[in-house]
Design a protein around this nucleic acid. Structure first.
Length: 823
RNA sequence: GCGGGCGUGGCGGAAUCGGUAGACGCGCCAGGUUUAGGACCUGGUGACCGCAAGGUCGUGGGGGUUCAAGUCCCUCCGCCCGCACCA
């Protein structure tokens, strides 16, 4: 008989058809009894074809979704598209193809691939964020936030990308460059829309403790939010009759302040220097500082520079007159743009004082061994000195609180907390995004579009080229409208929203995607949310993940949902590299998932990407290693087909297995145990697959070498292997299981190991002498400690080591080993 | 500088608790089967010494705790990621 041949090209479409026709992976909100689970991968931005990173994230997510289903949970596993965005618009400018057409084409290609990969998606819930039926509710949420003071417009210095001709949020500027195109961003003073994410800074920080996320992602968010606790202290300039507040984390060092510094951008510089004779020098310095690039300016290593402003302020704690300097090491964006300088206890102030020969006064006792000869600057803790009789001798941590209280009582300051986090700038001067549902009326001002007029649809336009304002401004028919309040002539807001707004709530919409009365039914939503397992790339550690957390909290506060956090557990998958480098067209090292799937089939491709290593780590693609996985799946299928040709059917646990059958049953149960362990609370898919390989190897050996002595046990072992591997290679597993049993493996519960087949009546006892392995001998499982010790002492290779030595101690670990300690 | 992570054969990587290091796969070597094959099956494969039995060494370096350390503690080195003149 010729051997049956594994043919993924025939198997895979056949099972995909079954899943599509039977809508196998759909869940309805009507049948939400029992335990549920919401498994979600970050939604893709559809552009061209999916790449290998998509294949990885959905392979990981699908493995989790299947495991949750088969361990008794109803699983929500939806898919959608982050479909607004700059690439489609830039493409339109270049090729003339409308953004919607290009996006729809890309979506079609993604859908096709995801189906060909056999990902278990509930397609009934699919949407794209550029669908009016979706962005209607994006606008609705915007208005909720606007009406409640969480969205506002202000004139501010903002980041402007000259290439993309739009403003950017702080999170979208990396090293002073546009996150998307790498162009150096410019500072511009503009009127823009913001979300008040800073109101949530404390909760965004504190609630990180309530979610199971990778520590490095939490750390990045903590860094980004950047909370510092301290005090705001007022320094008065009598000459100008003005108070200058500063923020400090070290009010305990107030007595050590010997000068005062303002940022070059500080609005009062001109006024301060006026009439002091320093005007020229100050102006020259400020001009130079302002024209310097971000990189040059931000270099902490370069020598400190600054110029005396010719004025003084009064230190509120001791009345001392402190000279005011302007220096570029002080940043306008942080705190108040002015600092008190304590050179004795701050490295930067110290460097400045040394450069300009300013006095340095230590006020905390202690020396920094790395510091100068005098042990300064000293940033550690210690008792106060040189301060005031009331505080000298007090430990600085206690003094910090006391001085803050004193400042508050005297009206010279107060406890204060500062954040690095800025409000989220959401408006963009681009076309392909969600319109901001606002009307500007000359009489009524800024007016919300009434909810019953949503969505404000994005009009069709011909010219997408950015001109420094939104291309929508040219769509006059659309821009000109009437004010909903006074019916007078008014204009629509022409900026669109940052696409991160679209993706900050899509996971909520999946729970109730067809609702046209509301963004969701809160009762339904609350049954699914929060997402049990979220999976995506670490590149979104701050942007998307912070914004989504903010939206969830804000919407919860407004009573629209219960969850305080969107994603209870987060898994960040590592990158697939090629030759140790990130894949990119310019490097020419791109691995096309389509090509691999075409050659080996989706099952092999998916299983290989999981087998390559731990999924949270980066992994280098190798064309060679994939054949191991291909052979393994082929072997599983072939053996199943052969076993199915033999007598009998089914993959039931044999009644009283013995001999070779018992060995197979045992191997299957060990595999169940190991795979379950790899999947429970972990994502050790590589280890899980390795254990199934081991089981299939045992089956192979029994079939080919020994002659299939127990067909029933063989079918059980192969059925178990198919069942265990289904989440990684669903088509071949479904087919093999069907051949063996006529049943559908996804309807079967996750296999449970039978303890009877995990225990054995004898085991290999390890005999150590002084911790060194000396022998292995068979021993009965039931043997007492004494019996084990006796057997160990009698073991031939151990005996040779014991000769002429005194036994000091014997350690017996039943079922494992005996360690004889000798002298 | 601060914070997080990592370091195991020729290669990718296994090893929840401290208890046989190197599972599984690639590669390599050998054998079987086949008209042939880049198909299929089986075995071997950390280094060194040895004909063998066996021994010595071995999880980035050094030190420690322990009967026992890849695993725990200290220290040093190297690599990766994030933040960084944030007061």
């Amino acid at each position: 008989m010729s051997e049956p041949r594994y043919d993924p090209k025939e198997i895979e479409p056949r099972w995909q058809r079954v899943w599509a026709q039977e809508r196998t992976w759909e869940v309805t909100n009507e049948e939400l009894k029992g335990e549920t689970s919401y498994v979600l991968e970050m939604l893709p931005y559809p552009s061209g074809e999916p790449h290998i990173g998509h294949l990885k994230v959905y392979s990981v997510g699908d493995a989790v979704a299947h495991f949750h289903r088969r361990t008794g949970r109803r699983v929500l596993h939806p898919m959608g598209y982050d479909a607004f965005g700059l690439p489609a618009e830039n493409n339109a400018i270049k090729t003339g193809q409308k953004p919607r057409d290009a996006t729809n084409a890309a979506i079609a290609s993604f859908q096709k691939q995801f189906r060909e990969w056999g990902i278990s998606i509930d397609w009934s819930r699919e949407f794209a964020t550029c669908d009016p039926a979706y962005y209607r509710w994006t606008q609705w949420i915007f208005l909720q936030l606007y009406e409640n003071g969480l969205a506002y417009r202000k004139n501010a210095v903002v980041n402007w990308c000259p290439k993309d001709a739009t403003v950017l949020a702080n999170e979208q500027v990396v090293d002073g460059q546009c996150e998307r195109c790498g162009t150096e961003v410019e500072a511009r003073q503009l009127e823009q829309w913001f979300f008040r994410i800073t109101d949530y800074a404390d909760r965004l920080l504190d609630d990180l403790d309530t979610i199971e996320w990778p520590e490095h992602v939490k750390t990045m968010q903590r860094n980004w939010i950047g909370r510092s606790v301290g005090a705001e202290v007022s320094f008065r300039c009598d000459a100008l009759d003005t108070e200058f507040p500063v923020f400090t984390t070290r009010p305990d060092t107030l007595f050590g302040a010997t000068f005062f510094v303002v940022a070059p951008e500080h609005p009062d510089i001109e006024r301060l220097a006026a009439g002091t004779g320093q005007e020229e020098e100050v102006r020259a310095y400020v001009n130079r500082a302002l024209t310097e690039s971000n990189e040059e300016r931000g270099d902490a290593e370069k020598p400190k520079t600054g110029v005396f402003l010719g004025r003084h302020v009064t230190n509120p704690v001791n009345g001392e007159q402190l000279p005011i300097y302007v220096a570029d090491y002080v940043l306008m964006e942080y705190g108040t743009g002015a600092i008190m300088a304590v050179p004795g206890h701050d490295g930067r102030d110290y460097a400045f004082a040394k450069a300009y020969d300013l006095p340095i006064r230590p006020v905390v006792e202690g020396r920094d061994p790395e510091g100068d000869a005098d042990g300064l600057p000293y940033t550690g803790d210690g008792p106060l000195i040189n301060s005031h009789a009331d505080f000298d001798g007090t430990h600085n941590r206690d003094a910090l609180e006391k001085i803050t209280v004193w400042l508050d009582r005297e009206g010279k300051g107060n406890a204060s907390t500062n954040y690095r986090l800025r409000d989220w700038l959401l408006s963009r001067q681009r076309y392909w995004g969600c319109p901001i549902p606002i009307i500007h009326c000359p009489d009524c001002g800024t007016v919300s579009v009434p909810l019953d007029q949503l969505p404000v649809e994005l009009p069709e336009i011909e010219d997408y080229a950015p001109k420094g304002k939104s291309p929508l401004a040219a769509a006059e028919d659309w821009v000109n409208t009437t004010c909903p309040r006074c019916d007078g002539a008014a204009k629509r807001e022409t900026d669109t929203m940052d696409t991160f707004v679209d993706s900050s709530w899509y996971f909520l919409r999946y729970t109730d995607p067809d609702n046209d009365k509301a963004p969701w039914d809160p009762e339904v939503l609350n049954r699914w949310m929060p997402v049990d397992q979220y999976i995506g790339g670490v590149e979104h550690a701050i942007l998307h993940l912070l914004y989504a957390r903010f939206f969830t909290k804000a919407l919860a506060d407004l009573g629209h949902l219960n969850a305080q956090e969107p994603f209870a557990r987060l898994f960040t998958q590592g990158m697939i590299t090629r030759d140790g480098a990130k894949m990119s067209k310019s490097r020419g090292n791109v691995v096309s998932p389509q090509e691999i799937v075409e050659r080996y089939g989706a099952d092999t491709t998916r299983a290989y990407i999981l087998f390559i290593g731990p999924p949270d780590k980066d992994a280098d693609w190798s064309d060679k290693n994939i054949v191991g996985v291909a052979d393994f799946l082929a072997k599983l299928w072939r053996l199943s087909a052969l076993a199915a040709q033999g007598p009998g059917r089914g993959a039931e646990l044999p009644n009283e297995p013995d001999g070779p059958g018992l060995e197979l049953v045992r191997a299957a149960n060990v595999a169940i145990e190991e795979v379950t362990r790899a999947m429970t609370g972990r994502f050790a898919f590589n280890a899980a697959i390795a254990n199934v390989m081991k089981l299939v190897n045992a089956c192979s050996k029994e079939y080919y070498e020994a002659g299939n002595r127990d067909p029933e046990a063989l079918r059980y072992a192969l059925g178990t292997a198919s069942s265990l591997v289904f989440g990684f290679a669903p088509h071949v597993a479904a087919d093999a299981y069907h051949l063996l049993t006529g049943e559908r493996v996804w309807d079967e519960p996750w296999p449970a190991a039978d303890p009877r087949f995990l225990e054995r009546d004898s085991f290999e006892l390890v005999v150590q002498v002084n911790g060194k392995l000396r022998d292995r001998i068979p021993a009965p499982t039931e043997a007492t400690r004494e019996a084990l010790e006796e057997m160990a002492r009698a073991a031939p290779n151990a005996q040779a080591q014991l000769e002429g030595r005194e036994v000091v101690k014997v350690i017996v670990v039943p079922g494992k080993l005996v360690n004889i300690v000798v002298r």
